[in-house]
Design a protein around this nucleic acid. Structure first.
Length: 459
RNA sequence: GGGAGCAUAGCCAAGUGGUAAGGCAAAGGUCUGCAAAACCUUCAUUCCCCGGUUCGAAUCCGGGUGCUCCCUCCA
């Protein structure tokens, strides 16, 4: 709330409670939505790596005007539309290696809690009812605007909203909307209707995390009015501090413009996933600090893909050395240099989740490791094991995933055997022909001092 | 009109008072039967511009310029 970086101290030692605003499920998500999901997943992973128990709540907004509109267009019920897009969202999250939330509450299943919260606001005078609608009375809440750094006066002066005659003040926002004929609705004391957009997050976050919790996140666009409204509703109702730390990620831009439907420049997560896969996309996100705007370029994804390939290669090489390198004690020299890099790795993440710097440290580890493993005596199995464990710990914290051992069909292994023979007899023409055959099957064969080695082609 | 933020090499991107990280791309070298991978070397006298403060500024201050976002649904 200070609008600056603060030292993080959880409410309960050893435990972190965080809430991240989830998607409105009326279509597949674009790369901007993906950024938020990946970033907050990374925050969670860092906290976990530090030993905190993290309760992570990520909601689905499955009751909303846009969902109703889509439902009417395709002739399904709103909840069926929502259900379908929740499934596609979960698929996308898996591909991005985003951990499943501890709880994924849906608005439609929390109407009771929402009504109770509105009731409480009415009793305390923070809300009023007009013809079946209920609004929040912004003037009753003096701190309104503190999060986004705007004053009520300034907001009113710049208001672009068309004034709704029913409201006492143009800034007042809906807690409950009366349903129009035929729309999905629930019974409430004021009317048959549905909750306003902001109240759901207050109700659900407080249900699972308590009246006060540690971290609340979302895209920067949610800062105002959504999060501002959440604070007003929640603190109005409870009288205690709602959230201790707010985090907002920056937007993805395309050609210096915000992605938006009206500009027709939406890039879908699934689209990138199908062309590059989840890890390059995740890498691209994390290679920029979360509060910076991130500009989408085709070339940036290609670069990310290359970078991920380098990491995968290191993973493979170390894995190989763990099996084949000579036995021996862990090099103290290696240990010392890795520990130095480790310091900068963790410092980066501890200081406002500076993932780009953490990635830098990761690449330093890669270079160090390769250097050690390929120069002089070449490093021991212990060294490789140490490198592997460090690398794994760091990449798990960032949410990067690597393909394990390559498994290949019997036809490839017989070709490999033939090639081995050919190489022994120095029949290189035949060896090259066999390599081409293996490649045609989707694998790449490399010759190392310890024999032939197979990788996936383009993996 | 009000609020927030960004500008660093061919590209992506750190650095926020001590003399420009890292990745991708590119060039040369080592290794290799050839490759691949890896390693080594090279690649911004300079950080949008103009002033100022300082022994010292990409970093602080003042003034410009360009761009983005928010104030309406939005990650």
């Amino acid at each position: 709330m200070s609008r600056r970086q603060e030292k993080f101290v959880p409410l309960t030692p050893g435990k972190v409670r965080m809430y991240v605003c989830g998607p409105t499920v009326y279509n597949t998500i674009h790369i901007g939505n993906g950024r938020a999901a990946v970033f907050f997943d990374t925050v969670r992973r860092v906290l976990m790596a530090l030993g905190y128990e993290v309760i992570y709540v990520h909601n689905y907004t499955d009751v909303d005007d846009k969902i109703i509109r889509v439902a009417q267009e395709v002739g399904e019920t709103p909840l069926a539309v929502a259900e379908r897009y929740i499934r596609t969202y979960e698929e996308d999250m898996r591909a991005l290696n985003v951990l499943p939330p501890t709880v994924s509450p849906r608005v439609s299943e929390h109407i009771k809690e929402i009504i109770a919260l509105i009731q409480k606001l009415l009793e305390k005078g923070f809300a009023y009812e007009v013809g079946g609608d209920v609004y929040f009375r912004v003037e009753k809440f003096p701190r309104y605007g503190a999060l986004s750094g705007q004053s009520v006066e300034a907001l009113r002066a710049g208001a672009r909203i068309e004034v709704d005659e029913k409201k006492e003040n143009p800034l007042d926002f809906a807690l409950w909307k009366r349903a129009k004929d035929g729309e999905i609705h629930w019974r409430a004391p004021w009317s048959r209707g549905r909750p306003g957009w902001h109240i759901e997050c207050s109700a659900m976050s407080m249900k699972y995390l308590g009246e006060s919790f540690d971290i609340h996140g979302g895209g920067i666009d949610l800062c105002f009015p959504h999060h501002e409204n959440e604070i007003a509703q929640s603190e109005g109702a409870t009288g205690v501090q709602f959230v201790r730390y707010w985090m907002h990620n920056g937007h993805v831009q395309i050609a210096k413009e915000k992605m938006s439907k009206s500009l027709g420049n939406i890039v879908q997560v699934r689209d990138i996933l199908s062309r590059y896969g989840g890890m390059p996309l995740r890498f691209w996100y994390l290679n920029t600090h979360y509060r910076q705007p991130l500009e989408y370029h085709e070339e940036a994804l290609v670069q990310a893909e290359q970078a991920v390939r380098r990491l995968q290669t290191f993973f493979d090489n170390v894995q190989h050395a763990r099996m084949h390198a000579p036995l021996g004690a862990l090099s103290t020299e290696l240990k010392a240099s890795v520990e130095a890099v480790s310091l900068s790795y963790w410092n980066a993440l501890l200081d406002d989740i500076r993932t780009p710097d953490a990635i830098t440290a990761l690449f330093e580890l890669v270079r160090l490791g390769h250097q050690h493993l390929t120069t002089g005596t070449g490093g021991s199995r212990e060294d490789a094991d140490y490198l592997f464990k460090t690398f794994s710990q760091w990449t798990v914290t960032l949410g990067f995933q690597f393909a394990g051992d390559v498994s290949y069909p019997p036809e490839v292994s017989s070709l490999l055997q033939e090639r081995e023979e050919a190489r022994k007899t120095r029949d290189f023409a035949r060896a090259d022909a066999l390599r081409a055959k293996i490649e045609a099957l989707g694998f790449r064969v490399e010759d190392t001092p310890s024999g032939q080695r197979v990788r996936m082609k383009d993996a």
